[in-house]
Design a protein around this nucleic acid. Structure first.
Lengths: 208, 208
DNA sequence: TGAATAACCGACCGATAGGTTGGTAAAACT
DNA sequence: AGTTTTACCAACCTATCGGTCGGTTATTCA
């Protein structure tokens, strides 16, 4: 048994750390909705009292802010990596879809929360602004892919981008990490989005 | 001037009717979220007081119930009409997607609310149950279309159905009725979903 | 052993929520 | 004119919310 500790051994009375608190909170936020979840609910799920919860976090909004930040950061990291890729815009778009699915799967709970934000507070408005930023990025990529002839040009780029990521984002509604490797799902999404649902030609081609 | 009245002339003091109340409520529910919207907010938007609002409706939940019912009814009507259609399952699936987009566009606010329900109350759980019913219906149609060779069989039917309607449903996030006829959008969605984003024809496509 | 540190709790607070009560104002019907 | 019907309102009630306060318990470091 290795007794090596990743955390260098904390001072004071042992208990929950911020990550555990955040995880519990986000799980509840997603299950019941942010507004429908009270700080008492979060505390109860952790087995602590509400006042102890406030020892860990400054308030309910901080939990939301941390969650949406992790989601948004993940998406932008994926976007940055894809932008560095060389190759056609079509391939970059394809890879952005693939890596977005992986980010969604990996940070499922955080992204789920992000996608439900309505803009009621400054924290939420900031999250919405960053989402729009990401959307603009996708739209630009679609436009380039159309210009180079890689994807169909008979659809408005913004509309295509929205429908494409509407499909991608929808998986927070049903994807559960326990069943199936996310890579396979990412592949399915890319295939469906780019090649469509219809059988191609007369060849009943089956891939992998 | 015709003085014909569609409503046969109401008794008593004139004022708001249930439909107007519902419309105002649903608009706010969608803008700020159901839980984040108070009955005071709804009353204020109508220019009446909270107690007057309770003269029109029995409670907040009734508003939610009426809204999700209108959404769900619309979707099932579309599904029923499509089922009566003769032709391949592939065509029926295609038409279900098309008419679903039209229902979403026509009853946008109601469907938007439906798609955000979390299952916190019995009303919400009932709505979720009917959504699952609809999903099962779509999945079955996908399975049939795969069996007859109309759409690709290398994707799990349930997954395909979810991704397909994930794309369809996502338009409540951005579609606004003022710009553009919904028929054109429905066409775009069907085309993208079935034929994919990629350019058809003599593409220098190299399968990864 | 004792200071420092950190997790913890019970009791409380002001604001706001959904909902109720009892009564008034304006229209249609007779 | 008077009855009925309907829309309307001010004031109020109780529960719950996010958040605070003062003090306690468990652990590490010197």
């Amino acid at each position: 048994m290795d007794t090596v500790r990743s955390t260098p051994r904390r001072r004071g009375r042992p208990g929950h750390d911020l990550d555990a608190v955040l995880a519990a909170a986000v799980r509840l936020f997603n299950a019941r909705g942010y507004d429908a979840t009270s700080m008492f609910d979060v505390a109860e799920a952790l087995g602590i009292t509400k006042s102890t919860l406030y020892h860990h976090v400054s308030g309910k909004e901080q939990l939301l802010a941390m969650a949406v930040d992790r989601a948004v950061d993940g998406l932008f990291e994926a976007a940055a990596q894809v932008q560095d890729l060389q190759g056609t815009a079509t391939v970059r778009l394809q890879e952005l879809v693939r890596s977005s699915v992986l980010v969604l799967a990996e940070r499922l709970e955080f992204v789920t929360l992000l996608l439900r934000v309505r803009g009621n507070t400054q924290v939420e408005q900031h999250a919405l602004a960053r989402r729009r930023e990401f959307d603009a990025l996708v739209t630009e990529l679609v436009k380039q892919a159309q210009a180079e002839g890689g994807i169909r040009a008979d659809v408005d780029p913004a509309t295509a981008a929205r429908l494409l990521f509407g499909m991608v984002n929808s998986l927070v509604e049903w994807y559960r990490p326990e069943r199936g490797r996310p890579e396979a799902l990412a592949d399915t999404v890319v295939r469906l989005a780019f090649d469509g649902l219809r059988t191609i030609g007369p060849s009943d081609d089956q891939g992998d």
